[in-house]
Computed example of a mutant assay.
Amino acid sequence: MSERDPAAARFAVIQIVRLLGVAFVVCGILIANGAYPLPSWLGYILIAVGLADTFIVPKVLARKWRTPK
């Protein structure tokens, strides 16, 4: 039986968070520009959450999962 590498799973989670962050930003821009019949404030919230998911959350996760010395 082979064991899964926890580092590979953590790397995949970080990449998925980044990808979802970019998707949130794109959807937020579309909503804010009126491409969808939703309130523009929702678009701005999605943009802010997406930027946080793209730039801040991966660093927090990497710091949390860092190998202890």
Score class of each variant (00 low, 15 high):
residue 6 P to N: 04
residue 39 P to R: 06
residue 41 W to S: 09
residue 59 K to T: 08
residue 67 T to H: 03
residue 6 P to K: 01
residue 57 V to S: 09
residue 2 S to E: 06
residue 44 Y to K: 06
residue 28 G to D: 08
residue 12 A to R: 14
residue 53 D to E: 13
residue 30 L to Y: 04
residue 42 L to T: 09
residue 7 A to W: 09
residue 67 T to R: 09
residue 58 P to E: 11
residue 31 I to L: 12
residue 57 V to P: 01
residue 13 V to Q: 13
residue 58 P to W: 09
residue 22 V to C: 14
residue 29 I to W: 07
residue 5 D to W: 06
residue 23 A to E: 05
residue 13 V to T: 14
residue 67 T to C: 02
residue 17 V to Y: 03
residue 60 V to W: 11
residue 6 P to H: 01
residue 59 K to Q: 14
residue 46 L to W: 04
residue 48 A to N: 06
residue 63 R to E: 00
residue 53 D to I: 02
residue 49 V to P: 01
residue 31 I to E: 05
residue 36 Y to C: 00
residue 14 I to E: 06
residue 35 A to K: 12
residue 56 I to W: 12
residue 35 A to C: 10
residue 41 W to A: 14
residue 9 A to R: 08
residue 45 I to G: 07
residue 6 P to R: 01
residue 52 A to R: 02
residue 24 F to Y: 14
residue 23 A to C: 10
residue 39 P to I: 08
residue 3 E to D: 07
residue 15 Q to C: 11
residue 56 I to P: 01
residue 51 L to T: 05
residue 12 A to N: 07
residue 9 A to K: 07
residue 49 V to Q: 08
residue 43 G to L: 07
residue 52 A to I: 07
residue 30 L to S: 07
residue 54 T to L: 15
residue 26 V to S: 10
residue 34 G to M: 04
residue 68 P to N: 07
residue 19 L to Q: 07
residue 41 W to M: 11
residue 62 A to M: 11
residue 14 I to D: 04
residue 64 K to R: 07
residue 67 T to Y: 00
residue 31 I to M: 12
residue 38 L to S: 03
residue 69 K to I: 10
residue 5 D to A: 09
residue 15 Q to I: 10
residue 63 R to P: 00
residue 58 P to F: 09
residue 60 V to R: 02
residue 59 K to Y: 08
residue 46 L to D: 03
residue 18 R to Y: 02
residue 68 P to E: 11
residue 25 V to G: 04
residue 11 F to C: 05
residue 35 A to F: 14
residue 18 R to M: 15
residue 29 I to H: 03
residue 17 V to K: 02
residue 22 V to I: 15
residue 39 P to C: 08
residue 22 V to W: 13
residue 18 R to K: 15
residue 29 I to V: 13
residue 42 L to G: 07
residue 25 V to R: 01
residue 50 G to E: 00
residue 57 V to N: 03
residue 61 L to W: 00
residue 67 T to D: 10
residue 58 P to S: 03
residue 51 L to R: 00
residue 30 L to D: 07
residue 29 I to C: 06
residue 49 V to E: 09
residue 66 R to A: 15
residue 65 W to L: 06
residue 57 V to T: 13
residue 53 D to W: 06
